[in-house]
Structure formats: structure tokens, C-alpha cells
Amino acid sequence: MTELMKLDAVSRRFGGLQALQDVSLTIGRGEVLGLIGPNGAGKTTLVNVITGVHRASGGTVIFEGRDITRLRPYQTARIGIARTFQVVQPFPELSVLDNVSAAALFSNTGVGVREATRFAREQLQFVGLAAMADKPASSLTLAMRKRLELAKALAMKPKLLFLDEVNAGLNSAEVEQAMNLIRQIAGGGVTIVLIEHLMKVVMSVCSRIVVLHNGALIADGTPSEVVADHHVVEAYLGKKYAQTATAGA
């Protein structure tokens, strides 16, 4: 598997808080990587540093062989890195179609409005929102907004797609739909980093999982390796439980 992105000792401090500490990680082309960790572990911060929302305090981010550590968000958007937000971020007054068209128009240089709109319609079709195209984005339900967020990200023709808790707040039927979509996107050749709390989703969709805890990477491996890892159990359930679990095993 060829390398798409490489993080080398990436750190980020917020005042006295070390949010990310020497995170080194390679993401292969076509991979579906699960990024998990307890609340506050630094998962979203890592995405923010990669996309340029926050500057890295140290370390480098390499994407397709190019150093992108210092790029701003609109620049990372244009080289093929897309993300969905944990808290959905539509443009409320624009129609659903315009929301997606905007993403297609501004992230791909040299695309006209007409072509962007056509491509946006395809994405809406794909995520199952075609019927809502002319409604204002503010009128959508949460599950629909999550799918709109996905359509926006896809309209950017990403090479690397960060999905930040796309399933949070959805019921089990909706989660099932979302998982199908994710599998289809991955099947289309897009590299995906899935940030997720629902272990069922991570275990079934991801080919590899990395675990963040207190800003540091504590595990990296196949799903079954990671859930059996001593450090991971400790991070999620506490030291005491980890000891009993290991002793019992």
C-alpha cells in the first residue's frame, strides 16, 4: 500500500495543555483507518492540525510527498483533504443544493457554477438527499444534516476524507445507512479516516485502527489486535479494570 499521508512527531499545545504529543502516523492510500480514543483524547484536534485550522506546535504533516504543515484550511481543502464536522456546519440560509455546489465550486479550481451544480446533484443523489435539494439547509433533520455534511465533503472530490463522528446522535437504522455509504465511498477509492465512538461501526468498517489517549498514540493495528491491547483497555476502562482483566485472562 502506498503512502498518502505521513505525520511526523506532530504536537499541539494550548497554553499549558499538551493536546497532541509527538503523534507519528502513516496513512496508506485506499485505507479505511479508524481513529478512536476517549473523550478529550485529541482526535478532533489532530484533524484540525492536519486541515490547518490549528497550527502544529511541532512536527510535520506530509501529504502526497508535500509538506503541508503550514497550509491554511482553504488550501488543504483545495489539495484534496475534506472533513465533516462533529457538530454539523451547514450554510443555513442556502438551499441544500447550493450548500453542496459551494463545496464543489470553491474546492476545485477551474470549475464553473454549472458544472459544480451538476456534480452537487450527483452527490445529493448518492447520499439520498436529492428530494430535498431546493429546501433550505436549516429545515433538515439531524440525520439529513449529517448526510448533507457528507455530500459537501464528497463534492470536494477528496483524496483523503476525515469523518468526524458522522454517526453520533443517529438511531440504529440511520447508522446502518451511514455505514453503507461509508463502505461505498471507500469502494470508490477514497482514503477515509473514521473518528468514531461506536465500536460496532469501527470494528466492521475499518481495516486498521489507531488509538489516541491524552494526545499520544498508544496503539496501532488491526481491529482485533487493538481491542485486546492492554494500554487501550486501560485508557478506556481504567488501570484497575485492566489489571483484573489481564489477571483473569
Binding site: T51, V53, R72, P73, Y74, A77, R78, A82, R83, F85, Q89, P90, F91, P92, E93, L94, D98, A102, A103, L105, F106, S107, N108, V113, K152, M156
Partner: peptide
């Protein structure tokens, strides 16, 4: 124009506009 479209995005949600590639 594209400028007006981008400004509408910025007005409604500037960080989301950044994320889809608008040079805010």
C-alpha cells in the same frame, strides 16, 4: 458572481466556508 456566493458562505458560517476552500 463566485465572489458573492463565497461572501454568502462566509456570512453564514465562516469556518465552514474555510473548510470547503473559500479563501475567506
Amino acid at each position: 458572481s463566485k465572489l458573492g456566493f463565497g461572501l454568502a458562505c462566509i456570512r453564514q458560517n465562516e469556518s465552514a466556508a474555510d473548510m470547503i476552500g473559500v479563501n475567506a
